[in-house]
Design a binder for these strands. Structure first.
Lengths: 332, 332
DNA sequence: GATGAAAGTGTAAGCGCTTACATTCCTGAA
DNA sequence: TTCAGGAATGTAAGCGCTTACACTTTCATC
């Protein structure tokens, strides 16, 4: 801890330029309020000293951090990557920086991450799904932090959200499969706790067929999905269609089908969700639901910025589209 | 901007607990220095007020942020996700928080991201690869910011790095393919500018065969790789093996081969790099190089923390392993 | 040239914390 | 009982910035 990280301060720049710190600050933040002459002097000083503003000091003095936060369940698969990217881009264009945290699908972890982001000065949050601990909901309400919920749409809720109707999207898949003639349909879904998107999908599927479907729980990786698929294949009657909550799981299911010598879609149809790259990479390509991730991310950012500027809450429902590919066909 | 975000401050807690701010601060940061009695009072006050420390103020007063930064090329594919995750976990265990930024494989963008992270108080950085703008190198050197380079190992360089020998890993693939009897080998690689890992891989392949190989450049997505594969198939003699710089590209190549009616590995062998999930999801599964992402991420964090604590620079070379799967076979 | 408004600049008070140093309290040995 | 010395606490000086307010210049107008 010697003089590491020694950095020029505003005062250094001011001295070098022969002006006051106020002028330097203005020059950097509201250049139009400073005369041409002074501006040049200041900029020269900034450059020679390699001055970079200290973020903490800035945030503290101005009492706003120009920072937004996002907490997503995971970075481990691509589900959120694209939306987050679009979110980030939009946010940066507006001069804000983004703090990202992951909750690992754990409500408690999400809560601490939210608190951390807030302590770090996040002025607004993007959150995934509606469901979370009551304590953190209260906290957010009390602090009056603008937030917008993404990846979910539920007209029953209040507040800002940009998302799609998970139940309806799932129902669309079910109807497609039913339309092909399948009567023995089963589900592979990730753990439902704290995940209202998945709950909605399971419920949507049940609604569409009129009863609850046999469901195996698997985490978001190939092997877990493969195991779940194997378990489903022991049921009798054996399902002729397996609907997965995610393309990765669908890929795992297809992988396992291959290992078991079952043809897809000949012996069993498989569907995914999200339309990730992997959906087209596997053989057969996966019938899935395309979610407008990019658009969603961008709209979340816009809505959040609008809330920050005093705008009203808004709920937007985005359309999803069924993408039929080779992994589904009529049962033999 | 009314009284939004009003939050209890240290002073509020101090008043509520009937002690000084210094005591509250100590109670939170060095509890052992405070008597049992006071501690209880303070903790009670903290809870009833819902106090959370203001990060900016903390960082400013203590003149250290307990923050590390990482800038990775992209979150769009899974390449860096796993390593970053491990990095993050290790860093959090040590009580640090992590700031992540993406450069989109653009050196200039990387430079601004690094500056941003530093302005935000990052005390150390994880960077991918050795190659970057001289200006930012100078800046880091001048500010004496501890950094460790990941994903690359180059004995020629100085400083801390945890990585593997990209050239050697690629040579291993080439040797495997050559060993199967292939003489017409081609490459699909991402844009090489500012990406020393890819440059090393291309060079490693060239070394292993004794001459430069026909190479098509494609970004990290299925379609770009598919196009690149199609272009390679127009060469004469037609390559019997296509080595990709990444599993996603390999998946794209296989997808395209299927579309063109070419059998993999019958008509053409394909290899990948990284051993991502997708490598096992596709059919045939991809012969690839397994990189110890998790271990690497963890070691980078440890090395960075050690540097922060005054430790010395260290260069670690990790082993990679060739994983032979169905996508490679002897040429017909 | 005098005048007042507008434009440019400076002064200084914090923002919410940490921490060196000063002060007070408590303990046990003499 | 006394008192040294450690333990517990308080006081107050910043950390590097922004910004209200005060002040000085500039300049068009009369």
């Amino acid at each position: 801890m010697t003089d590491r990280n020694q950095t020029a301060t505003l005062a250094d720049v001011a001295q070098a330029a022969g002006v006051s710190t106020a002028t330097v600050s203005r020059c950097l933040n509201e250049p139009e309020k400073v005369s041409e002459r002074t501006r040049k002097k200041v900029i020269a000083a900034v450059n020679t000293l390699g001055y970079a503003p200290n973020f903490a000091a800035q945030a503290m003095a101005a009492r706003r951090s120009k920072t937004l936060g996002a907490v997503i369940p995971t970075m481990a698969n691509a589900i959120f990557a694209e939306g987050l990217n679009a979110f980030q881009e939009t946010v940066m264009e507006a001069g804000y920086t983004l703090l990202v945290a992951t909750s690992n699908y754990d409500p408690d972890e999400e809560e601490t991450q939210i608190r951390t982001l807030l302590a770090r000065g996040a002025e607004g949050l993007m959150l995934i799904g509606h469901e979370r601990n009551q304590s953190i909901k209260d906290y957010l309400a009390k602090r009056n932090v603008p937030k917008v919920v993404a990846w979910a749409h539920d007209p029953q809720r209040v507040g800002s959200s940009i998302g799609f109707d998970n139940a309806r999207a799932m129902a669309a898949i079910v109807n497609h499969v039913k339309g092909l003639g399948h009567n023995h349909i089963a589900l592979i879904a990730p753990p439902t706790e704290g995940n209202d998107r998945v709950q909605a999908r399971i419920a949507g599927a049940a609604d569409a067929v009129g009863h609850a479907l046999p469901t195996e729980i698997a985490t978001y990786d190939l092997d877990a999905a493969a195991d779940a698929f194997a378990r489903l294949m022991t049921l009798s009657p054996r399902p002729t269609a397996v609907l997965c909550s995610n393309d990765v799981q669908a890929a795992g299911a297809i992988m396992q089908a291959r290992a078991m010598g079952l043809a897809v879609p000949g012996d069993v149809s498989v569907t995914g969700f999200d339309d990730l790259a992997i959906a087209r990479a596997v053989d057969p390509a996966i019938t899935t639901v395309r979610v407008p991730h990019k658009r969603m991310g961008r709209m979340v950012a816009e809505q959040l910025l609008s809330r920050l500027a005093g705008g009203a809450d808004r709920m937007v429902e985005l359309e999803t589209t069924l993408v039929v590919r080779g992994s589904t066909a009529a049962p033999q």
